[in-house]
């Protein structure tokens, strides 16, 4: 009856096979779940985290572009371009993973707050069976929105032509100088440091017995930088012209031409 001793071995083996099969199913399921969660984390939260780390340097670059051209490159442009860069990065990831994950930028905003510019975007990462929402944000220590507005205002102020009534040419020159200073001072010195160089040549166009008229074009060049620490050492440079009509209420005999030049800044003590 030798087989009687074999039977317990076979029974033991059957029990072991059953336990192992159960264990495999259980462990396999758990492993796949764990992998799913790990990958979901890597393509969503980890990507948001990495974007948050990269965003300050993107914003810094955008800020430098804005500072060198604040009239055409406004706060809104900065927001649009930054969002485009983020969308591009997310698109590459989505594409390279064979669309295992799909990203959508739900909303974004850029606004100035005190002495800062803040960029914020809400992104949704969609994996096969889940959606994860994340927020990326970065700030730049200069209020770029107000800076670009200040430069726009300044350019508008400087665009206006001017008519000066004066008793003599020296007085006319003083009036023009004061006018340029006023246009700059309107801006205050809170967000932007400005220096303006200007010059113009005036020539006599009309002379009657009690009035002499000169016309001239003031050509100005603006050098502006943000008032706080400027991280990219960029300067805004714009130039332009405005016309000035000078009317002297007497007959000026000797002066056919005169010139004006000067320098104005809104930060007296450097």
């Amino acid at each position: 009856m030798i087989y009687k001793s074999l039977l317990p071995i076979v029974i033991t083996l059957i029990i072991m096979v059953t336990i192992t099969t159960y264990l495999i199913n259980y462990v396999n399921y758990e492993t796949n779940e764990a992998l799913l969660y790990e990958n979901r984390y890597l393509v969503s939260i980890n990507v948001f985290k990495q974007l948050n780390e990269t965003l300050p340097s993107i914003i810094q670059n955008e800020a430098c572009t804005l500072i060198s051209n604040p009239i055409n490159y406004t706060c809104e442009t900065l927001g649009i371009n930054t969002t485009d860069i983020i969308a591009n990065v997310l698109g590459i990831i989505s594409n390279r993973t064979g669309s295992i994950v799909h990203y959508e930028i739900m909303s974004y905003g850029v606004y100035g707050s005190g002495n800062e510019t803040i960029y914020r975007a809400t992104i949704i990462a969609m994996t096969q069976d889940d959606e994860i929402e994340g927020m990326v944000s970065a700030s730049y220590p200069i209020n770029l929105c107000l800076y670009s507005q200040a430069i726009k205002d300044l350019m508008n102020n400087l665009r206006a032509n001017l008519t000066v009534y004066a008793n003599n040419i020296t007085e006319a020159i003083q009036i023009v100088n004061r006018d340029v200073s006023n246009r700059v001072e309107l801006l205050g010195d809170k967000y932007v440091k400005i220096t303006i160089y200007y010059e113009g040549v005036f020539s006599m166009v009309r002379r009657t017995s009690n009035q002499t008229t000169y016309v001239g074009q003031i050509h100005y060049t603006i050098y502006a930088t943000p008032n706080n620490e400027n991280y990219c050492n960029k300067t805004t440079v714009y130039s332009g012209d405005f016309y000035v009509i000078v009317i002297i209420n007497k007959y000026v005999n000797e002066t056919l031409y005169f010139s004006i030049n000067g320098l104005v800044n809104n930060h007296a003590a450097q």
Binding site: L35, E38, N39, L42, V43, N46, V47, Q50, L51, E53, T54, S57, I58, Q60, N61, I85, N88, V89, I92, I93, N95, R96, T97, G98, I100, V101
Partner: peptide, 29 residues
């Protein structure tokens, strides 16, 4: 760094590096 051919991958690891306009994106699988 290729696209996944099957669902048999272990980990997808996207890396964002670089600064400013020079942003590199690599997806390791």
């Amino acid at each position: 760094e290729d696209k996944p051919l099957s669902g048999n991958y272990l980990i997808i690891c996207p890396r964002i590096t670089g600064s400013g306009y020079d942003i590199n994106v690599t997806v390791y699988i």
